[in-house]
Design a protein around this nucleic acid. Structure first.
Lengths: 219, 219
DNA sequence: ACCTGAACACCGTTCAAGT
DNA sequence: ACCTGAACACCGTTCAAGT
């Protein structure tokens, strides 16, 4: 009985079944602190206070650990989108807010976002990690759900919702990707102009997709 | 005179000043064959027939080598876009073709594309490699140039060309990124629908940005 | 100037051994 | 069942030494 006397009263659930969660939550911090390139399994293990081989008791390999982190990321993304839906009743307003929320998630968690999408081996892990597909599908479902309400309200033209969803997803995903890799200032510098702040550029892009870039007087 | 008797007649320009180019061109092949995750400097060196330390005579480190490869990638992307412009005179047609050409470049060179954009340390290298900025700016310039012609022809609404360019860039970049990470089938599976082939989804997205997703009868 | 070979630090992964 | 410590293969990078 002398082992871990206050274990259940204090935190130290480590070594008692919580190592897996401790690794994932610490990985989330470490990822944003150091960046994905410097993220190392050995560093993670030492920061959580275990040997560098300990993670292998809970994950098959490094990519499996990262897949679990990505799942967490999709839940987090879902929370961002959910909030945008809740806070706005007007469908068109929901469209802009959801887009902005999506971009905000990406810019506030760049390393996590890159892991979730530009994950090199993640596509392979997706079959092994059904949660990874489910979490991603849930986020996409919130997007098409919002578009469906816009369509029913008569604000959206007729057409396949999945097609619309894919286009919007590609747009916001592209916005995040360009922003977090620092291509925004580049786009401004490239020619001569100023595209204003990043937020303005995002909003303008979202409205561009909604209203179209073409001259409305044109057929 | 007994050193390299037929050097100038046969290929073997290696060891005679061509190592740098040999490394870059071999890296382009190796990148698509093995994928970025498995791309190793030692493997590259051995495939080109030199010791694993030889590349350091021409590049400061691995990322500097990759930056040179990325520059090559931007030139290649420029060639794709240039062709789309040349082959079409109608501005609106150029818009769709350029977008499709951009996506085709990405899907045909996924590892190279990822290196060019989701490059982790590339942003830092961009200051050290002015070519990297120039090559990227040239591609963006072709995009805004095309949009400018559309605007002058009256097909595009009034507005900041850089802003339009950024929105279109984000869209095609997002399309490429989602496609090469295998998210397209996912989007189709997620809900219930079929968004058709990838090519159709790309075209629909491009036209969506041009004409807008909103109901044209709506204010 | 350009390349080689050995060496160093570091990482992912495995495994016998501990508790 | 979960964790440790040592070990292995591999990689990026450095450097003295060769040509």
């Amino acid at each position: 009985m002398k082992s871990c006397p206050v274990a259940s009263l204090v935190k130290r659930t480590y070594h008692h079944g919580d190592l897996r969660n401790a690794l994932v939550s610490e990985a989330l911090k470490l990822l944003e602190e150091q960046g994905a390139a410097e993220f190392t399994l050995r560093d993670l293990a030492s920061r959580v206070g275990v040997s560098h081989a300990a993670p292998y008791s809970h994950f098959e390999d490094k990519t499996a650990l990262l897949a679990a982190v990505a799942v967490e990321g999709f839940h987090k993304l879902g929370a961002y989108l959910e909030q945008a839906v809740q806070e706005n009743s007007d469908p068109t307003e929901q469209y802009v807010r959801m887009g902005e929320a999506y971009v905000r998630f990406g810019t506030e968690n760049p390393a996590l976002y890159n892991l979730m999408f530009t994950g090199k081996e993640l596509p392979e892990q997706r079959d092994k990690f059904p949660e990874l597909n489910e979490a991603g599908s849930a986020a996409f479902g919130m997007l098409t759900g919002m578009l469906g309400r816009m369509q029913q309200s008569g604000f959206l033209r007729e057409g396949n919702l999945d097609g619309f969803g894919f286009a919007v997803w590609a747009l916001v995903h592209g916005l995040v990707s360009l922003i977090i890799t620092g291509r925004v200032e580049c786009a401004g510098d490239c020619v001569d102009g100023e595209i204003g702040t990043t937020e303005e550029a995002v909003r303008a892009s979202l409205l561009g997709m909604l209203h179209g870039l073409k001259n409305p007087l044109t057929a």
